[in-house]
Amino acid sequence: FSITQFVRNLGLEHLMDIFEREQITLRVLVEMGHKELKEIGINAYGHREKLIKGVERLI
């Protein structure tokens, strides 16, 4: 299971460039909250919320 699959499953594949540029893996994403996601350029609250909720389902 990769970050690419995870992001695609959430319908947020347009954010993949950010994850690749910042070298974010699923392991790193698990540790990130709204503040960190915003810092790397994910400005939409809804997108950040989707990512965080998606990660919570993985754990």
Rank of each mutant, 00 (worst) to 15 (best):
F1S: 10
F1P: 10
F1H: 09
F1R: 06
F1A: 09
S2L: 08
S2H: 09
S2Q: 10
I3T: 05
I3E: 00
I3G: 01
I3W: 06
I3H: 01
T4E: 14
T4A: 14
T4C: 13
T4N: 11
T4G: 13
Q5R: 09
F6G: 01
F6D: 00
R8C: 09
R8F: 10
R8G: 07
R8T: 14
N9S: 15
N9E: 14
L10C: 06
L10N: 02
L10K: 01
L10E: 03
L10M: 08
G11A: 06
G11P: 00
G11M: 05
L12S: 00
L12G: 02
L12F: 04
E13C: 14
E13L: 11
E13R: 07
E13W: 10
E13T: 10
H14C: 14
L15N: 00
L15D: 00
L15A: 02
L15F: 05
L15K: 00
M16A: 12
M16F: 06
M16I: 14
M16K: 08
D17W: 15
D17C: 11
D17E: 14
D17M: 12
I18G: 01
I18Q: 03
I18W: 03
I18H: 05
F19T: 00
F19M: 06
F19K: 00
F19W: 02
E20K: 11
E20G: 06
R21S: 07
R21I: 05
R21E: 06
R21W: 05
E22Y: 13
E22P: 03
E22C: 10
Q23H: 14
Q23E: 08
I24C: 03
I24Y: 03
I24H: 02
I24T: 05
T25R: 04
T25H: 05
T25V: 05
T25F: 03
T25L: 03
L26T: 03
L26I: 09
L26Y: 07
L26Q: 02
R27T: 12
R27S: 13
V28T: 13
V28A: 13
L29F: 04
L29N: 00
V30Q: 12
V30P: 05
E31G: 15
E31N: 15
M32T: 01
M32E: 00
M32W: 07
M32C: 03
G33M: 03
G33E: 02
H34S: 03
K35E: 11
K35F: 07
K35P: 09
K35W: 06
K35H: 09
K35S: 10
E36D: 08
E36M: 05
L37I: 03
K38S: 09
E39T: 09
E39Q: 13
E39D: 12
E39H: 10
G41D: 03
G41V: 05
I42E: 01
I42T: 01
I42W: 02
N43V: 14
N43R: 11
N43M: 14
N43T: 14
A44L: 13
A44E: 15
A44C: 15
A44T: 11
A44G: 11
Y45D: 06
Y45G: 05
Y45P: 09
Y45A: 10
Y45K: 10
Y45I: 10
G46Q: 15
G46H: 15
G46S: 15
G46I: 15
G46P: 11
G46V: 15
G46A: 15
H47Q: 14
H47T: 15
R48E: 01
E49F: 08
E49Y: 10
E49H: 10
E49I: 13
E49A: 12
E49S: 09
K50C: 11
L51H: 05
L51D: 00
L51A: 01
L51G: 00
I52P: 01
I52Y: 02
I52L: 14
I52W: 03
I52Q: 02
K53Y: 07
K53R: 13
G54D: 04
G54V: 05
V55E: 00
V55M: 10
V55K: 05
E56H: 12
E56Q: 15
E56T: 10
R57A: 15
R57V: 09
L58I: 09
L58Q: 05
L58C: 08
L58V: 07
I59K: 13
I59S: 08
I59P: 07
I59R: 10
I59G: 08
